[in-house]
Amino acid sequence: MAPREKLRTETFVTLADTMVKDFDIVDFLSMLSSRCIDLFDAREAGLMLADPDGRMQLTASSSHEMRLLELLEIQHEQGPCPDAYRTGAPVQVADLTEAVARWPQFAPEALAAGYRSALALPMRLRDETIGALNLLRVEPGTFPDEDITAAQALADVATIGILHHRAVAESHLLSEQLQYALNSRVVIEQAKGALAQKLDLTTDEAFDVLRRYSRAHNLRLVDTAAAVVDRTLDAAVVATERPGG
């Protein structure tokens, strides 16, 4: 196997492995950007993901050199990345000197930073496009077809990783919210019972007292309830908000 081919295979294995073990999205994408330079004839690589408003945000890059970061960040709205994101298709520019009219802000900045050609590949799964992978070269010319195919394959793997990570994060957040809401509901009922007992009230009256006390002290109902249940808040103190009292 040719050295570059071997490296490509290794990259896929590493990416897959990263997705299984202790997945860290930032490490994962930084690794992907760095590998792009070794795998393809590119000087630098950057990865941009769309925020919920569809604006491109720089997420990872092959180096942290200021000039590169600025160049990538210029592409909030304009440049090969947003174009690849919007169209869902690869965007290739063999000579950036001919792209000044197309990207009046990006192209001159890229040329000033020493880049002559660029490739942006959409990060897409089925009908959902989430961002773009950007490769920059110092020489003019097109990227070899096999590089474009391999880079697109890497972008595809990364897209699956990101979407999976998002789905897991969302389900984790909802699970936590559900657990919290269940526990809150229970602790409020427990506090109603404890206050009803201590203040000789019905549970409805106890709830009223609990609510008045929380409002008067600008506390969340669930926090007052928890304090009553674990007995850090004395029922007699809560009773200062007794109905009519």
Partner: peptide, 21 residues
């Protein structure tokens, strides 16, 4: 889901009462 928990609300109220008693 609120209705699911509500069915046992009385048990939690009773737990609070017994805890205080």
């Amino acid at each position: 889901l609120d209705a699911t928990v509500h069915h046992r609300a009385v048990v939690h109220q009773a737990s609070g009462m017994v805890s205080a008693q």
